[in-house]
Design a protein around this nucleic acid. Structure first.
Lengths: 352, 352
DNA sequence: TTGAAAGCGATACCAT
DNA sequence: ATGGTATCGCTTTCAA
C-alpha cells in the first residue's frame, strides 16, 4: 500500500504539503503541486479510507435506506438507486446500502459509528418509522419522498399535485368535460402518499372546472393486466375518451392495446396523458404526451442538499417540490368530440 | 460522540479491556464484561468506523459491483442485491454499492483505499472487464456468476447445466420424446452465459436420449408477450405437450394463459417445468414443478467464501456450482400421451 | 509557500 | 485477567 509518506518522499516535500495539494485547502505552488501529482500517479496513491475518516470529519459515504418491500416496483426503485449512486459519485461520495427490514437499526448504527456523512431515505411511507430516527440522529438526512409528518425534515419530491392539476387542465383545455384517471395499485395508495397527492389534486381541479373525473386503481397488489383491461373497456363503453395514466409501463401498454383493438386513434379519437411515469414513454407503441417523473432530478437535488449541509450551509429543513414539465407528443386531440356526442353515436355494449 | 475511553471510565477498566470484551479476542472475567456491557448500552457506544478501519485490518464493508445495464431484469437483480445485503449484515458487513458505468474505476478505488474488505461481483458477463481487475487487486473478490475466463477466480453460481439435464430427464422419464424449451431473451444469451449453459446441457442430454428438443427465445431485448404467445401457439400446433420454461414470470404467465385458453390441463394434457426461476412460482395461476434459482443460496455462499478468506482460510480459487433441487407440484403428467399420438388425434391448424 | 507535530479513536502487542 | 502504549495514515493547527 502506498502511503502519503511515500508520496511526500518521492515529491521531496512534507506530508502536509501533499495533503493540501490534494485537498486544495491551502495554496500550493504550481511547481510543487505538479511534482506531487506526478508522484501520486506514478505510485498509484489513493488515500487510506480509514485514516481519512478518522482524521478528517468526512467519510465520503452516504447511506441509502430502502425498505425493499415485496410490493416495491423493482424497475422504478432501481432507477432511483442508480440515479442516487451516480449523483453521489459525481460529488465524491459512495453509497452504502441499508436494506434492513428494520431500517432503524442500520440508520442508528451508521450514524453512531460515523460511517456515513449523510443519510438518504428512499421509498418513503406516510407514517415512515425512519422519520423518528432522522430526528434523533445528528447525521444530516434527506428524504426522497414526503412522509405525513414532515415537520423539521428535509424532503425532495416531484410536485405530484401540480402534475394532477396540469394533466386535468390540458385535457379540459382541449375541450373534454369528462376524463378517466388510471391510477396505481390499491396498495400503493395505502403505502405511499404520492399517488393520493396526484389524485386529490386532479379531483379538486376537476371539481373546480366542472369536470367529471373517474378513477380506477390497477389491481390489488401487483398491477393486474386483466383488471386494467376491463377497466379500460368499461371506461370506453361509458363514453370516456380522455385518459390520464399514473401507472407503470404495463398499464400504459394495456391501455394502448385496447385502444388499438377498438381502432381508436390516440390524438384523434382519444386523448392520453402519461402522468409521473419514471420510465421512457417514448418507447411505447404510441408516443404519449408525458409529464415525466425524472429520478435524476430528485436524486441530484437530494445529494446536493446533503453536500451543502456538510459544507456548512445552514439550510432550513423544508420540502422541495420539483415542478412538473409537460412533454407534448400529439396524444391529446386538439378539438375532441364532446363525450356526450360520443355516447350518442356509439351505444355502449355490455362489458365483458 | 461516545468513545471507548468514556466506556472504559464508566466501567472502571482500561480501554484495552473494553476492546477485548467487545471483540472477544481475549478472555474477560464475567464480572467486568458485564460492567462493560452495561456501560456500552447506557452510553449507546458504537465504535468509530474510521478508527476501527485504521487500527484494525477490517473495514466491515463489502463492495457490491453491479453494472445495471438497460437490459437488466430489475426484479431478479433486486432479489440478488437484497439477498447479498442480508447475508452480509448477518456476518457483520455492510454493502457499498458500485454501480458505475465503469465498474473498473470503482473497484480499483475501493481496493486501493482499503475502503472494503472484499468485493462481490454481480451480473457477470462472459467477457466481463471486472475479471482483469479482480486479478489485479489484492482485495478478495467473489463472482456471483461465471465469466468465460474464470481461471484463478472464485465464483459462485447455480449449476445451470445440471438444471438443464434434470428438466430434460424428468420429462423424458415421464415418457415424452419431444419437448420445448422456452428460453430467455435474445440479448441475455449474448450478455450472459448461464442461459447457454442450461440450453446446451439440455440439448446434449436430449440428443443422448434421442429426444427432439425445440428451443425459442422470448423476444429481442425485453420479454415480448406477443412473441411468447405465438411461440407457444406454434409449439402446441406442432404437437408439443412438454415445456421447460427458463424465463421471467411474464413468460410463465403467457404460457399458462395460452394453455388455459386451449383447455389444456397442466399435469394431465401437458407437462411444464419451470427451470431456474428466481421468483416464487407457487404464486402462479397453476403450480408448476420447479427447479428454483434461490438467490439467497448463491449470495450466502459468496459472502461466506469472502468472510472465510478474510478469516485467513486459504481457499483455492474455484467455481462453486450449486446443485439444483426439484420441487414437484404435479405439473408433469405421470403417463402422458406420446406426442405422435397427440398429433394424430388433433390435426394441427395453421398458426395464427 | 512550506514543515513539524498534535491529535483522531480504535486495535493489539508487551507487560504485569 | 487486566493495563499501558505504540501504531495505523491521514487532517489540520501552529510556526517559520
Amino acid at each position: 500500500m502506498t502511503t502519503i509518506h511515500e508520496v511526500a518522499k518521492a515529491a521531496g516535500v512534507s506530508i502536509s504539503t501533499v495533503s493540501y495539494a490534494l485537498s486544495g485547502k491551502r495554496p500550493v505552488s504550481e511547481k510543487t503541486r505538479q511534482r506531487i501529482e506526478d508522484a501520486v500517479t506514478a505510485l498509484g496513491y489513493q488515500p487510506d479510507a480509514g485514516a481519512r475518516m478518522l482524521a478528517g470529519r468526512r467519510t465520503h459515504i452516504f447511506a441509502l435506506t430502502e425498505p425493499l418491500r415485496a410490493d416495491t416496483h423493482a424497475p422504478t426503485h432501481m432507477a432511483f438507486v442508480l440515479a442516487t449512486a451516480i449523483a453521489a459519485r459525481r460529488r465524491g461520495y459512495d453509497i452504502l446500502l441499508l436494506t434492513d427490514e428494520q431500517a432503524s437499526e442500520g440508520m442508528n448504527r451508521v450514524a453512531a459509528s460515523r460511517l456515513v456523512d449523510a443519510i438518504l431515505v428512499l421509498d418513503v411511507a406516510p407514517d415512515d418509522e425512519r422519520v423518528a430516527i432522522a430526528r434523533a440522529v445528528s447525521t444530516p438526512t434527506v428524504f426522497i419522498g414526503v412522509p405525513e409528518d414532515h415537520n423539521q425534515l428535509m424532503c425532495v419530491d416531484m410536485d405530484f399535485a401540480a402534475v394532477g392539476d396540469l394533466a386535468v387542465d390540458r385535457l379540459a383545455d382541449a375541450g373534454y368535460n369528462r376524463m378517466m384517471l388510471l391510477g396505481q395499485t390499491e396498495v400503493s395508495y395505502r403505502r405511499s402518499n404520492f399517488p393520493r397527492r396526484l389524485l386529490h389534486a386532479a379531483q379538486d381541479r376537476a371539481a373546480e372546472r366542472g369536470i367529471d373525473l373517474d378513477w380506477v386503481t390497477t389491481g390489488e397488489i401487483a398491477t393486474d393486466t386483466a383488471v386494467v383491461h376491463s377497466a379500460v373497456e368499461n371506461a370506453l363503453d361509458r363514453g370516456h375518451r380522455a385518459f390520464i395514466v399514473h401507472a407503470v409501463d404495463d398499464t400504459h401498454e394495456v391501455l394502448l392495446s385496447v385502444l388499438a383493438e377498438r381502432g381508436l386513434a390516440v390524438g384523434t379519437d382519444v386523448s392520453v396523458i402519461s402522468a409521473a411515469a419514471s420510465f421512457d414513454t417514448t418507447a411505447l407503441a404510441v408516443k404519449l404526451d408525458t409529464i415525466p417523473l425524472v429520478p435524476q432530478r430528485s436524486c441530484e437535488l437530494a445529494v446536493d442538499l446533503a453536500v451543502r449541509q456538510l459544507d456548512g450551509e445552514r439550510l432550513v429543513p423544508e420540502i422541495h417540490l420539483l415542478p412538473p414539465e409537460y412533454l407534448p407528443f400529439g396524444s391529446v386531440a386538439s378539438s375532441p368530440l364532446d363525450s356526450s356526442d360520443v355516447r350518442a353515436e356509439r351505444p355502449a355494449p355490455t362489458a365483458d
